[in-house]
Simulated scan of single mutants.
Amino acid sequence: MNLALWICAGLLAAVALAGGISKTFVPKETLAAAHGGGWTEDAGVGFVKTLGVLELLAALGLILPAALDIAPALVPVTAVCWVLLMIGAMVTHGRLGEARFVLLNLAYLALAAFIAWGRFGPAPFTG
C-alpha cells in the first residue's frame, strides 16, 4: 500500500509540476492557443499564474513533507486540496464541452483521493 501511495503521489506531483510550470511561466496567449487551453481566454493573467503557483506548491506538498519527514501530514492535506482544484477544472472544461479533459481531471482527482484516503487512513506517515 505504501509503495502504491508513493507512486501515485509521484505521478500526481509530476502532473502538478508540469501544469504549474506552464501556467506560471508560459504567456497566457500561448496557453490559450494550446489544445485544452481555451479556458485561459476568459481568465485573467493573475488568475492563471495563481493557479500555476498553486500547482507548483501541490507538486512540492505531495512529496517533500514525507520525504524530508517534516510535517508529513501535509501530504494528504495537499491531496485534498488537489481534489478541490480538479473539481474546479472539471467544471471549467465541462462548461466548454471538453469531455476528454473532464475525464483526465477525473483521473487526477481519483489519484488524489486515493492518496488522501491512504495517508489519512490505512497508511499514514507515523512512526
Rank of each mutant, 00 (worst) to 15 (best):
A16E: 07
G88M: 04
T40P: 00
T24L: 03
T24C: 01
G38I: 04
A59D: 06
V77I: 15
L3Q: 11
L111N: 05
L12T: 04
A58F: 13
V83Y: 00
V48E: 04
W117P: 08
I115M: 00
P76R: 03
L104W: 14
I115K: 05
A110S: 13
A73R: 11
P27I: 03
V75C: 05
A13K: 00
A67T: 14
L57N: 12
T92D: 13
V83A: 12
A13E: 01
L12S: 01
A71M: 12
L5S: 06
A4V: 08
P27V: 00
W82Q: 12
T40S: 00
L109G: 14
A16Q: 10
A33W: 03
A13I: 01
I115Y: 00
H93M: 13
I87R: 06
P65E: 09
A67H: 09
G38D: 00
L60I: 14
V45P: 09
A9Q: 05
N2T: 10
V102K: 12
A59Y: 05
V45K: 13
G88T: 06
A14N: 08
L106E: 09
W82Y: 14
T30A: 04
A89W: 08
D42E: 12
I115D: 02
A43I: 09
W82V: 15
H35A: 14
L64A: 15
K49P: 09
L60A: 14
I87C: 13
E98L: 10
A34F: 02
T24G: 07
G52H: 03
A9F: 02
L85H: 15
W82H: 12
G61C: 06
V80G: 02
F47L: 15
D42N: 10
T50L: 14
A14I: 07
V83I: 15
L31G: 03
N2C: 08
R95K: 14
A4S: 11
L84G: 15
G10S: 03
K23Y: 04
A13W: 02
M86E: 13
A34T: 04
G44V: 09
F114E: 02
S22F: 09
V48Q: 04
L68W: 12
I87Q: 11
I70W: 13
G61L: 08
V91R: 11
N2G: 10
E98P: 04
G46V: 07
T78V: 08
A73F: 15
F25V: 00
L31I: 02
A59T: 10
A116H: 08
A110P: 09
L11T: 09
T78P: 07
I87L: 14
G52C: 06
K28A: 01
L111C: 08
V83L: 07
C8P: 00
A66V: 09
A112E: 07
